[in-house]
Design a protein around this nucleic acid. Structure first.
Length: 638
RNA sequence: GCCGACGUAGCUCAAUUGGCAGAGCAGCUGACUUGUAAUCAGCAGGUUACCGGUUCGAGUCCGGUCGUCGGCUCCA
């Protein structure tokens, strides 16, 4: 009766008196596990190690090696941060302090914002708290007690949090030394577990993410169980910074952005090659999948945007101009233009699904603080398409777009995740339409067996959407592909088709992008490949390096031959040592270097050096060309 | 837009408490005719982001504007 059975992940069953703690069990399993234990998963729920086990349980001891273990570790780190801030700035009010990917943050309301010097002081204080190794103890209290405690200390944010808690959940506090915080937990057993900690940055952040509310000071940090791991993490961040597309874009002469046009990127000749290769591949794939390409104007009359709903729902993001005393808008989206093409003649159900694709240049007024290299700009080219169809074609079409997007991303070896966004507060259309549209998207995802995250209220103003997100070098995710189902525009523009029954009906419309914006996608590509593009995308595919100027004529003839085979080739004719030329070609991340000296001229060969594998030795020029063409044709990842 | 940091040559960075704006790389010129990641020498390069102020004197201190960076909010 007072003994319970604890089942470990490997199936081992252990018998214990009722009320034993996970900590005790860990100690018995192995001293090493006990030392590394941070929390425990008991019957699926993550709890403190000190939680008494009251019934037969599945038990998993969590360490830093697990996702949940890391979350608990970082979350406890944020409490140590809060305690340090409390000691140094007693007047600080506390908001929230969660674990995030690779670290944690805590939001504070302080009269003056923190400086980098403050961070050093706070970090030093945190180290004292860690050295003191305070036990972290959970207490459950009533809402009234909790409210009284925090209200009495002027902790208005905590007070608000408690008031917003669902009435049935217990309110828990965590205490470490002189510091008490409202927190659901769980936490590591004591502050000494956090061996290595580093505060990384300060930033402003709105309370509850609402720009109308207080601006708080957010301190970001990260922590690890060993100093070595922290150092490794910091080293990886430095490594990642070397892949930054803004840095590589300048170094490789791909694009630039100027003060004269913040958020309006300029593409240089080498950047244009990547862009054009990408676009021609895109065209090929779309034409083969039943899309037709269109192009619509950038400037269109104001009344069009009133009719589309953009005037009411998107005006603050739009640019306007005037022509002959008439108001015009610069398009922020391509849909109204596509719709005008649709409306230019009558349609039959037999044409459906009608897939009209457009590489459309749109302009959007984004807030100055959000601009970021090519990732967030104010003018960009969407690989857009509008699909007009029968309601019963919706699911197949959505699945077709999912397939197409997956196909495109796989070519580049991208990992992505998918989100489903539902009806926002300011939206057009009836509740029923939204429900139907959202259900169609959800069903398509489920039928495809794709995992997705739901973003409530994040849809476009005319319909719900599925978004595809890709990661940049620092792990920040950017929305690229999107599929948006729209019942509103067809209604507003009174779109029609003649059905099988000879009557007029209203078509359904999908807005979709796969790459998203060409600019953003190129930004992601640059970081993904760290500038070393696969040969099919590389601005210069082959650099010919003559050893002396007597090898120039052969080099030039060779270059001519490669050019005729449509290879992007350059000859380094400068009077420099071959080591110097190699170094430069290597830094420019050119896939192949051909070294040409007396031997090669005599034998009609080329000495091939690959940027990734180094010296490959000599081969017949024809043989090299064949291999190269094969690699380009296959769009091989290099 | 909001919070904070930053802005010196094309790039990366120096310049004591306010006291003559400097280096490496890149560029140009010349010599060297070179075999798998940097040959040597010389030359040139600046309204220290912009506007204003304090001061005998401002890259440095103060105010404003613009831009960039990290976040927040927003979104492809």
């Amino acid at each position: 009766m007072d003994r319970i059975v604890i089942t470990l992940p490997d199936g081992t069953e252990l018998e214990y008196p009722r009320g034993v703690t996970a900590e005790q069990v860990a100690k018995d399993i192995s001293p090493r596990l006990y030392k590394e234990a941070l929390a425990a998963r008991v019957n699926g729920k993550v709890v403190d190690l000190a939680t008494p086990l009251e019934e037969d349980s599945q038990l998993e001891v969590l360490t830093f090696d697990s996702e949940e273990g890391r979350r608990v570790f970082r979350h406890s780190s944020s409490h140590i941060l809060a305690q340090a801030v409390k000691r140094l700035y007693p007047e600080a009010k506390f908001a929230i302090g969660p674990a995030i990917e690779n670290g944690f943050y805590y939001d504070f309301d302080v009269p003056e914002s923190f400086t980098p010097q403050d961070l050093e002081k706070i970090e030093a204080e945190m180290k004292k708290i860690i050295a003191a190794d305070y036990p972290i103890v959970r207490e459950e209290v009533s809402r009234e007690e909790a409210l009284a405690y925090f209200a009495g200390r002027g902790e208005k944010y905590k007070e608000e949090l408690i008031r917003d808690l669902p009435p049935d959940v217990p309110v828990s506090l965590y205490r470490q030394g002189d510091f008490v915080d409202l927190c659901a937990g769980p936490h590591v057993p004591s502050t000494g577990k956090i061996k290595a900690v580093k505060l990384t940055s300060v930033a402003g952040a709105y309370w509850r993410g609402d720009e109308k509310r207080e601006m708080l000071q957010r301190i970001y940090g990260t922590s690890f169980p060993r100093q070595k791991e922290l150092d490794e993490h910091l080293r990886m961040l430095e490594e990642a910074a070397r892949r930054d597309h803004r840095k590589l874009g300048r170094e490789l002469d791909l694009f630039s952005i100027h003060e004269e046009g913040p958020g309006f990127p300029f593409f240089h000749p080498k950047g244009m090659i990547i862009r054009n290769e990408l676009e021609s591949f895109w065209r090929e794939v779309h034409l083969s999948r039943g899309y037709q390409e269109i192009k619509t104007p950038i400037i269109l009359r104001e009344d069009l945007w009133k009719q589309s709903g953009h005037w009411d729902h998107y005006k603050e993001n739009m640019y306007f101009t005037e022509i002959d005393e008439q108001g015009y808008a610069i398009k922020p989206m391509n849909c109204p233009g596509g719709i005008l093409i649709y409306k230019s003649r009558p349609h039959s159900y037999r044409e459906f699904p009608l897939r009209l694709a457009e590489l459309g240049l749109v302009h959007r007024h984004e807030l100055s603080g959000v601009l970021h290299g090519l990732m967030r700009v104010r003018s960009f080219t969407q690989d857009d398409a509008h699909i007009f169809m029968l309601p019963e074609q919706i699911k197949d079409e959505i699945m077709g777009v999912i397939d197409l997007t997956d196909y495109l991303y796989r070519i580049f070896g991208f990992d992505y995740h998918v989100e489903l966004s539902t009806k926002p507060e300011k939206a057009m259309g009836s509740e029923e339409d939204w429900e139907m549209a959202t259900r169609a998207l959800r069903e398509a995802l489920e039928e495809k067996g794709i995992e997705y995250k739901v973003n409530e209220g994040d849809g476009a103003f005319y319909g719900p959407k599925i978004d595809f997100h890709l990661k940049d070098c620092l792990g920040r995710t950017w929305q690229c592909g999107t599929i948006q189902l729209d019942f509103q525009m067809p209604e507003r523009f009174e779109l029609e088709y003649t059905g099988e029954d000879g009557e007029k009906h209203r078509p359904v419309m999908i807005h979709r992008t796969c790459l998203g914006s060409i600019e953003r996608f190129i930004g992601i590509l640059i970081e993904h490949y760290a500038g070393a593009f696969p040969t099919w995308l590389a601005p210069v595919q082959v650099k010919i390096l003559p050893i002396t100027d007597r090898h120039l004529p052969y080099s030039r003839r060779l270059a001519q031959r490669l050019k005729e085979a449509r290879i992007r080739v350059e000859v380094d004719e400068r009077n420099e040592k071959v080591g110097y030329k190699i170094r430069e070609a290597q830094l420019n991340k050119i896939p192949y270097m051909l070294i040409i000296g007396d031997k090669e001229v005599e034998e009609g060969t080329v000495s091939v050096r690959s940027r990734s594998q180094g010296d490959l030795g000599a081969m017949e020029a024809d043989r090299f060309l064949e291999l190269l063409k094969g690699e380009i044709e296959a769009k091989a990842a290099s």
